[in-house]
């Protein structure tokens, strides 16, 4: 299967730095809105929620790139690092707002991490992303070879932890978390679809 020509051409013309720029503008834009009172009356909670969901969306986008190429032929591989790193940056912002603007104290943060299972889970996901962010340079990819691929499969764990962290703080709502889970499980499941073997008698003509 091949995507339409114009789509492939269009995608090829998009520079990778646009992902970083978009992420930075989105993070900064939301923060500015919060600062100027345009994000509702509880801007801290709103920022935490939006940054958190943004990071989850970005991780999901990263998870979609490989199956998208395999099943539709659309190749977005060259954006994958930018998407993954952007997810990490958004997560840093999410955590920073929680620690600095919401809790405003390291001791409170310690208590939250130790005593609130959903925050423990969220922190674990964040910590697991750190080595992935650190090994996202060309040099690390070259040096680590197949170990790099193995290490970066941690994103599968991280995204499941991220979903759990999100689902556990939801009150009342059921449909949205389940929709997220379904999408994540489909994207993970597609990786286990066996590849078709090349036909053995390709050149036999009747």
């Amino acid at each position: 299967m091949q995507p339409p020509r114009w789509l492939q051409d269009a995608v090829r013309r998009v520079p990778v730095w646009l992902i970083y720029l978009g992420t930075a503008l989105w993070l900064g834009g939301l923060f500015a809105m919060a600062l100027f009172g345009r994000l509702g009356v509880d801007p801290v909670a709103e920022l935490i929620a939006q940054y958190g969901k943004g990071a989850l969306n970005m991780l999901i986008a990263g998870l979609a790139i490989t199956p998208l190429r395999r099943f539709t032929g659309l190749n977005l591989l060259r954006f994958r690092r930018a998407v993954g790193l952007s997810a990490f940056f958004i997560l840093c912002a999410h955590l920073a707002v929680f620690a600095v603007l919401d809790l405003q104290s390291l001791s409170r943060l310690g208590v939250e991490i130790a005593e609130r299972p959903f925050i423990t889970i969220g922190m674990l996901g964040f910590v697991l992303l750190i080595p992935l962010a650190l090994t996202s340079t060309d040099r690390a990819i070259r040096k680590m070879g197949r170990n790099w691929t193995k290490l970066h499969r941690l994103t599968y764990v991280v995204i499941l932890l991220g979903w759990l962290h999100y689902e556990w703080q939801v009150r009342g709502e059921v449909v949205e978390p389940l929709t997220y889970l379904t999408i994540i499980l489909i994207l993970l499941g597609l990786r286990f679809v066996p590849r078709k073997r090349a036909p053995l008698h390709k050149n036999v003509s009747l």
Partner: peptide, 18 residues
């Protein structure tokens, strides 16, 4: 799932704290 030891006063703005 969360602590009840402190609360965020709504309307206190971005730097209002708890």
């Amino acid at each position: 799932r969360w602590s009840q030891a402190s609360e965020r006063p709504v309307g206190a703005g971005l730097f209002g704290g708890r």
